[in-house]
Design a protein around this nucleic acid. Structure first.
Length: 467
RNA sequence: GCCGAGGUAACAUAGCGGCUAUGUGGGGGCCUGCAGAGCCUCAAACGGGAGUUCAAAUCUCCCCCUCGGCCCCA
C-alpha cells in the first residue's frame, strides 16, 4: 500500500516517496513562547504526532523537529511587561508546552531547536544572502529582495503583481519593494537585541525556521508542516530564503492542517477566543480530546464547542466499551479451535492502514474501528470465543492505539479486591436475584460499583469490568 | 479584489464515476427484576442550475453561500 499525501506545493495528492530511502526529515512550526498553548496548537501537535507515527509505521525512521520561537514581538512585549529576561519567559512556556502536550499523549519530537540559540547561524545565513545579492541592508535592517527570485508565490499561488495591486500594506520606505520581507530588524529602544554586522537587533520572523530546519534536517528535507494560516507569508518566504541560500529545493512535501474555529471565527490569540489546553483538560479526558481532534481529517476546520466534545466522548465510549469487554474475556475464553475471527482482526488493521494511507485520513481510520467494533461485539455475543481470537482482537486495538492513542490502558484490580472476591460477590448477588431479593442484589451491585467494578447481566451470565 | 479550503441526512464527519457510509441523536424490536452494554431494524443526504456519460454526491461550466490567507497566528 502506498501512502498518498496532499502536498500544498502542488495542490495535489502525491505518492509519498522520501528523499532518502530510510530516513524522513520532518519539521513542524511550533509555538512562540509567550503564553500557554491553546487548542489550536493542540490540533496541530496531535495531527503531526499521528502523521509522524504513520510515516514510521510505513517503515521509515523519522527525524522530527519542532521549533520554539522565543524572540518575536509578542515574546518581547511580554518579557518587558513582566520585566523578566526573554530566556526566563521562554523556559517557562516551553515547560508548559511539554506539560500540555504530554498530557495530550503527544510523543516528543527528536529535536526542539530554539531561535535564540541559533543566532550565529542566522546571522551567517543573512550575510550569505546579502553576498548572493538576494538581500540588502537598509538603515540597520536587512530585507529579502523578492524581485531577485523567479518563483515567487509557488506555494501560495500568488503573483507579485497581484500582491502589489491589492496591497494594503504600509509602504516602508526602507524597502525597495513593498513585498520585501525582513531578515534582520534593528532594535527599538528598550528591546532585547543581538549584535550583528548591521545593527543591534533581531532576526525577522521567517529566517529562523529556514536556518534551524536545514541545520538539523539538511538543505532539502521531506516534510514541513504547520497550520494553513502559515502558508503565506511564512512558509512562502521560508522557501525563498532557503532556496536562495542553497540553490536547492527546500522541502518536498508541505502539509498544512486546518484551523480550529470557535463558532464562526478561528481560534486565535488576537481574537481572544481561545481555550487553552489546560482549560480543556479540566473539562475533558485527554483521550476524548484526541478522539475529537482525530475524528476529522486534518485539513478540515474543526469547531471547538461543548456539544462536539460531548459527542466525541459518547462515541469514544462505544469503542472503549468493546475493548473493555474483550479484555474481560481473556480469562474466560477457551482454547477453541480456530474460528477465523483472527482474520477479521487482521483485515481491520488493513482497513485502518488503508485509511491512513489516504492522506492520513484519521476520520476514516476511526470509522474502520467502529466497523470492527461492531463485528467484535457480535462475536462476543456468540456461544464461546477462542483465546486466539480474543488475543488477536486485543492486538488490533493495541495497534490502533499505538497509532492514535485514544483508548485507556487495561486497568488492573486495586484496592485489595481479588478476582475471587468479586466472584463471591457476584454469586451472592445471583442468589439474591434468584430469591427475588432485588434490594440486596442492587446493594451488592452498588457496593462493587463503589469499588470500581461494574457488573453487567448478559445472556451468558454476569460479566464485570473495571470502571 | 486576488489566492486557497469547503458546502453530504437533525447534527458532526467519510466517500470523490456504478456497491447508499461512520458516529451522535430519533422511531421500533430483541435481551432484561431494574440498570448498563450490546445486537437487529426503520426514517433521514449529497448548496442551486446546466452539461458530459449507459451511469454523477463524485467529471465540466456557471451561479450562490461559508471559512481561511493577503499585519501577527498552529
Amino acid at each position: 500500500m502506498t501512502l498518498m499525501v496532499h502536498n500544498t506545493l502542488s495542490g495535489k495528492l502525491e505518492e509519498f516517496v522520501p528523499i532518502n530511502e530510510n530516513e524522513v526529515g520532518m519539521y513542524v512550526c511550533g509555538i512562540n513562547t509567550y503564553d500557554d498553548s491553546h487548542m489550536g496548537h493542540a490540533k496541530a501537535a496531535v495531527t503531526f504526532d499521528v502523521i509522524r507515527r504513520h510515516i514510521e509505521k510505513k517503515g521509515y525512521k523519522v527525524k522530527y523537529a519542532i521549533n520554539f520561537t522565543d524572540i518575536e514581538d509578542h515574546c518581547i512585549e511580554r518579557a518587558i511587561e513582566l520585566d523578566i529576561p526573554l530566556k526566563e519567559l521562554a523556559d517557562k512556556y516551553i515547560d508548559e508546552y511539554f506539560k500540555d502536550m504530554g498530557a495530550l499523549g503527544v510523543r516528543k519530537a527528536d529535536i526542539y531547536p530554539i531561535a535564540s540559540e541559533h543566532m550565529a547561524e542566522i546571522i551567517q545565513a543573512i550575510e550569505k544572502l546579502i553576498g548572493n545579492g538576494f538581500a540588502y541592508e537598509s538603515g540597520g535592517d536587512v530585507y529579502f529582495a523578492v524581485d531577485k527570485v523567479e518563483n515567487y508565490g509557488q506555494l501560495s499561488n500568488r503573483k507579485l503583481e497581484d500582491m502589489q495591486a491589492g496591497a494594503r500594506i504600509d509602504v516602508d520606505d526602507k524597502k525597495r519593494n513593498p513585498m520585501d520581507f525582513t531578515l534582520w530588524k534593528a532594535k527599538k529602544e528598550g528591546e532585547p537585541f543581538w549584535e550583528s554586522p548591521w545593527s543591534e537587533g533581531r532576526p525577522g520572523w521567517h529566517i529562523e525556521c529556514s536556518v534551524m530546519s536545514m541545520k538539523y534536517l539538511g538543505e532539502t528535507f521531506d516534510v514541513h508542516g504547520g497550520g494553513t494560516e502559515l502558508v503565506f507569508p511564512h512558509h512562502e518566504n521560508e522557501i525563498l530564503q532557503s532556496e536562495a541560500l542553497t540553490g536547492k529545493p527546500f522541502v518536498k512535501y508541505w502539509l498544512h492542517g486546518g484551523l480550529m474555529n470557535v463558532g464562526d471565527d478561528k481560534m486565535s490569540k488576537s481574537l481572544c477566543n481561545f481555550f487553552t489546553i489546560k482549560d480543556a483538560l479540566k473539562q475533558y479526558d485527554p483521550l476524548v480530546i484526541r478522539f475529537f481532534l482525530l475524528n476529522t481529517q486534518y485539513k478540515k476546520i474543526i469547531d471547538f464547542n461543548d456539544k462536539a466534545l460531548d459527542e466525541a466522548s459518547r462515541s469514544l465510549e462505544r469503542l472503549q466499551n468493546t475493548l473493555d469487554n474483550v479484555r474481560g474475556m481473556v480469562d474466560r475464553s477457551v482454547d477453541a479451535s480456530d474460528d477465523g475471527f483472527a482474520d477479521v482482526a487482521k483485515k481491520a488493521i488493513e482497513n485502518f492502514d488503508a485509511a491512513m494511507d489516504n492522506d492520513f485520513n484519521t476520520r476514516d481510520a476511526i470509522a474502520s474501528i467502529f466497523d470492527f467494533s461492531k463485528d467484535v461485539n457480535k462475536y462476543l455475543e456468540g456461544e464461546k470465543s477462542s483465546r486466539e481470537s480474543i488475543e488477536a482482537i486485543i492486538r488490533a486495538f493495541e495497534e490502533f492505539n499505538d497509532r492514535l492513542t485514544i483508548f485507556r490502558d487495561a486497568k488492573s484490580l486495586d484496592g485489595g479486591l481479588t478476582d475471587q472476591q468479586i466472584q463471591v460477590m457476584i454469586e451472592l448477588r445471583q442468589d439474591a436475584r434468584a430469591k427475588k431479593d432485588f434490594e440486596l442484589a442492587d446493594q451488592i451491585r452498588d457496593k462493587l460499583k463503589d469499588m470500581g467494578v461494574v457488573l453487567e447481566d448478559t445472556a451468558d451470565g454476569v460479566k464485570w469490568k473495571l470502571a
